[in-house]
């Protein structure tokens, strides 16, 4: 049986060989697992949505399964609600074993294509595996146009511990700041994801802080909209969904605690 390093070596070789000038990227000897992993991740990030061999998938899935589960996995049972049906949890969303995690996507919906970029879209696609981009590409090809802000699309989550990924595109905030339209688009992101989760009969959904990363939505205002929209949805539709607000930074944790726990 291959060990993790053998698997990585195979995956890197495969990805380099399918690139026209891939060998140039190979650079010098890669010694550590970390270096190899970073190269693998970057190659997957820039890889187009095209067919891949069964052997690659098998090897990648074995690698990612071990890599993803070699961390503390968090389930809903591990958490305490802060309000009825509402949970707050700080950590890496790709370690959550819940029905659906929400990905902050862009309007191409194919995952981050910048090698090793430090964003949630990148890490979700990397840890899910190359199948996720193929699944998104299929959705987008069928749709025939870019994904509008404020909507939601569901895919399998492949090698992630969650069952599904719900992809939503938030509003991008430029130098002119937040406008009523953008506030409404952010609220639509939350309500569209909740509606889709209910349509699919899911029990639990974990939201990241949509649009607050690369899309520059101010964190405090985004959290207010997120919480208000979720609460309104749950009560209006008598939804039984459990909702986890997943924060990654200490700043967002404080903001959500103030809004949810200390209110």
């Amino acid at each position: 049986m291959l060990n993790q390093e053998d698997r990585l070596d195979y995956l890197i070789r495969y990805l380099l060989e399918e690139k026209p000038n891939g060998q140039e990227l190979a650079q010098s000897e890669l010694n550590s697992m970390d270096e190899k992993f970073e190269l693998f991740r970057g190659l997957c990030n820039v890889r187009e949505a095209k067919l891949v061999s069964d052997e690659f998938i098998e090897t990648q899935d074995a690698f990612l399964t071990e890599w993803n589960h070699d961390r503390k996995i968090t389930r809903l049972d591990d958490l305490q609600p802060v309000q009825s049906q509402i949970y707050l949890w700080k950590g890496d969303i790709t370690t959550l074993a819940v029905d659906a995690i929400v990905n902050a996507a862009n309007s191409r919906l194919l995952g981050c294509t910048q090698a090793n970029h430090d964003c949630i879209d990148n890490i979700i696609h990397t840890r899910a595996g190359v199948q996720l981009r193929l699944a998104c590409d299929e959705i987008m090809t069928e749709q025939g146009r870019m994904e509008a802000a404020g909507k939601a699309k569901l895919t399998d989550s492949y090698n992630l511990p969650s069952s599904y990924v719900i992809h939503t595109v938030g509003p991008f905030i430029d130098e002119r700041g937040v406008s009523p339209i953008k506030e409404q688009l952010l609220a639509s992101c939350y309500s569209s994801c909740l509606k889709l989760a209910d349509e699919q009969g899911l029990d639990t959904i974990a939201f990241c802080c949509i649009a607050t990363g690369e899309f520059n939505f101010p964190n405090e205002r985004a959290a207010e909209i997120a919480i208000q929209t979720v609460k309104e949805y749950l009560s209006k539709y008598k939804s039984k969904l459990n909702v986890i607000f997943n924060v990654f930074s200490e700043e967002d944790l404080t903001i959500y605690e103030n809004l949810l726990v200390n209110e």
Partner: peptide, 11 residues
């Protein structure tokens, strides 16, 4: 309708 504009894609 669906609009694709320089700053956003919108329905």
């Amino acid at each position: 309708l669906n609009l694709e504009a320089s700053k956003t894609v919108l329905e």
